[in-house]
């Protein structure tokens, strides 16, 4: 399969192009929508996990245990199962269990515990001496979180965001199961089920490029914010 082959295929499959563009839009939609909501909920959850720890800023053993168990349950359910298992919840939330919007719900639910653990890990890297110095300065717990913990862990958190987005690109391929569309879905339906190797290859290449872009953008941001 050479480059020429793809060019030839491209010329003779003009209608496919629109399909691929739409699919890319759906993938981006799913990845960034679920990512954004996931960060909005996952980052605070990660912070809570970190500060409620033993000897943490706001030590709370019970809260830490409960959150830990919930996050672990979320992390242990295979995504394809989560996708169908929460259909009633999805229907309640977006009014339908099929389509791109419906796929965003399980993607978000899957992303939240994932992000929470990554954020927790990033916060763990912040030297405890900094928190102590802030306490000695007379910082309130909320100020310590906003002015010390999160800014100091920012490079790690950005890294976590990138890992999450890339993982979501992978998960979004499974969203075809609930009619969510996207590049992975096109690859399976047109490439695999209709034996169209060209479509398969193009979707894979598009996904590779997408992941590359996300990763290099992230690396650039980490570099910019990392003053350690």
């Amino acid at each position: 399969m050479s480059f020429n082959f793809i060019l030839q295929w491209w010329e003779s499959n003009a209608p496919m192009i629109q399909l691929l563009i739409d699919a890319l839009g759906q993938t981006l939609n799913m990845v960034f929508a679920s990512g954004l909501i996931g960060f909005a909920l996952g980052i605070p959850l990660g912070v809570l996990l970190h500060v409620s720890k033993k000897k943490g800023l706001l030590e709370n053993h019970i809260l830490n245990k409960v959150l830990g168990i919930i996050v672990n349950i979320g992390r242990s359910i295979p995504f394809i199962i989560l996708l169908v298992a929460i259909i009633p919840f999805t229907r309640f939330l977006v009014g339908s269990s099929i389509g791109t919007a419906a796929a965003i719900v399980p993607l978000t639910i899957g992303a939240i515990p994932f992000i929470a653990r990554l954020v927790e890990g990033a916060l763990l890297e912040v030297p405890s001496g900094l928190v102590e110095a802030a306490q000695a300065m007379g910082a309130t717990p909320l100020q310590i979180i906003c002015k010390v913990l999160l800014p100091e862990a920012l490079p790690g958190i950005i890294n976590g965001i990138i890992i999450t987005l890339v993982t979501l690109v992978g998960y979004s391929a499974m969203a075809g199961t609930v009619g969510g569309g996207g590049l992975g879905d096109v690859g399976i339906r047109y490439g695999y089920q209709r034996f169209d190797a060209g479509v398969m290859l193009i979707t894979v290449i598009m996904l590779v490029i997408l992941v590359q872009i996300i990763q290099s953008l992230g690396d650039h941001l980490v570099k910019r914010f990392d003053h350690r």
């Binding site: 030297p127 900094l130 110095a133 000695a136 300065m137 800014p151 914010f225 350690r228």
Partner: peptide, 30 residues
């Protein structure tokens, strides 16, 4: 009350995410 007690440490404990100006500004921000 701690705002009226300054403290310095063996390992400095400066915030790596802030430059010198904003490190010094931190207690004032707080």
């Amino acid at each position: 009350a701690r705002r009226k007690i300054g403290m310095i440490f063996q390992h400095f404990n400066l915030l790596s995410s802030r430059n010198v100006f904003y490190n010094i500004a931190l207690p004032l921000e707080l």
